[in-house]
Each structure stands twice: as C-alpha cells, then as structure tokens.
Amino acid sequence: MPPISRGFQGRRRTDVDPARIPPGQYLTPDFPVLSAGPTPRTPPDAWTFSIDGAIDEPRRWTWAELLALPQETVTVDIHCVTKWSKLDTEWTGVSLDTLLDGVETAAEHVVAWSDGGYTTNLPLEDVTGGRAWIAHTYDGEPLAPEHGGPARLLVPHLYFWKSAKWVRGITLSVEDRPGFWEGYGYHNHGDPWREQRYWSD
C-alpha cells in the first residue's frame, strides 16, 4: 500500500472520460517541449527521408516527393513519459504503410534517426498497420521546429519519445538495438497503457 500524503487532495478531472488517460498521466492544454539538445533547423529543400538497412533497394524521398504521396489526417491522443497527455491532436502526414509498401525484409525492428543525432527503436509491427506516420502538419499548420518540424515520426500509441522529432529516416534491422533514451534507462517498448516508462517497468 502506498503511503497517504497527508493533506494531499489532488484534482480529479470530471470533464474527460478517465478511460482516455493512461495510468500516471495528467492532461495538459499546452504542448510542452522535451528535447535533449538544441533544436535543429533543416530547411525542407535540404530535407530527405530514407529507408535503409535490411532492404534490397534503399528508398529515399525529397520533401516535394513526400508531399506528393497520399496524405492522411488523423486525430489522436498523445502521451509523454514526463506525465503529460494531450487529447485530440490533429496531424497530417504520410503513413509508414505507404512508405514501406512492397518492401520485403527480414527485419523485425526499426531505428528512427533524426537531425541532431537522436535515435529511437521500435518493433516494425508498431510502425505498420496504420499506426505510424511521418507528420509535417500539426493542427493545420506546418509543424514548428521545436515540435520536430519540418517532419517528425508520429506513433501515438507509444510514449511520445518514440515519435522522433526531426526524423530523417528509419533503418530496418534484424536485431533490436536501443536508441537514445532507451540507452539511458527508458523502456524499450514504451506502451503508456502498461506504464512502460523505464527499463524495469
């Protein structure tokens, strides 16, 4: 039994379905920024997105080519491991299913990599099946640099550090290798509904 913190009342939300808030999270109307270093600023005309690693013919798209692909707009809830959750966020981008269409690979894992050196690892099955996007538009506007623009990975069913900001590519990999925060003790998978914050959770 956890100890009672004497005099702590807390503030229970009555205006939101509690089933939408994962354990240990609280709602914020803001959009906090969590990044480990300075914000990289890559102009779209110097931006490309690559799929490499365990793939016979690596793929690469320019900014214009990405925008020419079928676009999807999704409204999703997002959950940051630092405890904030934000409901009904609207993003536009290209589904990873579109980018991976027709790829044959023995890989079961991917590592997303970004400008500035950030990386994060995910099971391939977590970024396919309509669950992940390369998002360039937030709430109808170009994604701001501090939130990962020009484009970030969007994997809303996992803690948001998996949704790599400033993403430039994914590497398909047979072996699972920890990314940046995973190497610092954060959970390898990061499912907010199972409260997988740290490696021992």
């Binding site: 906090p32 920024v33 969590l34 270093g37 050196g117």
Partner: peptide, 24 residues
C-alpha cells in the same frame, strides 16, 4: 541553446532540460 549554437558551440555539447508550456 540557439544562441550557443550560433556562437559556435558544438550542438552535441549542448545539453538541454526544458519544462513548462511552450509559451506559443
């Protein structure tokens, strides 16, 4: 962090910890 990078500091040597809303 932007000022440090612009002044010539290695971005990889700039460690950042942010809190609170974005203010925008």
């Amino acid at each position: 962090a932007d000022l440090l990078v612009r002044a010539g500091h290695d971005p990889r040597a700039v460690h950042a910890e942010r809190f609170g809303p974005t203010g925008s």
